[in-house]
Design a protein around this nucleic acid. Structure first.
Length: 258
DNA sequence: ATGGCTGCTTTGAGCAGA
């Protein structure tokens, strides 16, 4: 089974890239973030034509998440609300069960700047999310947590750790939450395998960041113990970032032996 | 270097992203 995550930064703009990528990568499950459209505008038809059944939790202008599936099993126990953040108007979570696999797709807040209101919202969100994942690990042996975490877990995941030190996406306050997810039993599937140095999943649109490989690894696929032993590979596909008018993020993919 | 791009918005300057 192939599972992937991709922050598309507007599904409307990126639909041609998405359909092209689906045909080449052929994921069974794909979590999208920042679709930036409401559910009534979701492009079900072109994705259905490629064999994908989609569920979405959208929002106008900002945020929005979706899951695409070409598995036989219909999604069960669909969840869009993060317990503890029930009043949150921002669409950042979509979870569903496909057969034995529980998939949680997230767009974790950016945080703007350490110490800002948005940063505090991010920490509050991460706190509620950690409790939610703890419970999910108890409930679902085969758990996959994917998405744009907006956290670079380690200095290896940062092109210039000195320049980024202490700033949003790499601050200790944020990284401790990522560590907690690992302490709960999840594994960062990317680090199960030997990887090229300077592997990133996001590059700023500005200052030719991509061609200079000035990036961060902030998109992740975390898996529960029952899946760790079955995980065969985890890769970042930078090909879509090279296209005309790309998303600033690129897909991350895992292959899990059935 | 606090900009630098890009996407969105009752369309045009300002917000948000990371």
């Amino acid at each position: 089974m192939r599972i992937a995550t991709w922050n598309v930064n507007s599904l409307t703009v990126r639909l041609p890239h998405l359909t092209q990528w689906l045909q080449s990568a052929q994921p069974d499950l794909l979590g999208l973030q920042e679709i930036k459209l409401t559910d009534d505008k979701f492009p079900h038809e072109p994705l259905q034509q490629l064999g994908y059944h989609c569920i979405a939790h959208g929002q106008k202008t900002y945020n929005g998440v979706a899951i695409l599936s070409k598995l036989a099993e219909a999604p069960q126990d669909i969840q869009t609300r993060l317990p503890g953040m029930a009043e949150d108007p921002q669409s950042r979570l979509l979870a569903a069960t496909y057969g034995e696999v529980r998939l949680i797709n997230v767009y974790i807040p950016n945080g703007a700047e350490v110490g800002s209101d948005k940063f505090n919202y991010k920490l509050q969100w991460l706190s509620a999310f950690t409790a939610y994942i703890k419970e999910a690990l108890r409930t679902y042996p085969k758990l996959v947590v994917i998405g744009d975490f907006n956290i670079a877990p380690d200095d290896r995941d940062v092109h210039d750790p000195k320049a980024w030190e202490g700033s949003v996406l790499v601050s200790p306050q944020e990284r401790v939450y990522f560590s907690q997810l690992l302490e709960l039993g999840l594994t960062d599937s990317f680090r199960l395998f030997e990887q090229p140095v300077e592997s990133y999943s996001w590059w700023d649109y500005r200052a030719a960041a991509f061609v200079r490989n000035h990036g961060l690894r902030i998109d992740h696929i975390l898996i529960s113990p029952a899946l760790t032993e079955k995980c065969q590979s985890c890769t970042i596909d930078i090909a879509p970032r090279k296209l005309e008018r790309p998303s600033d993020h690129t897909p991350v993919i895992v292959d899990i032996h059935e």
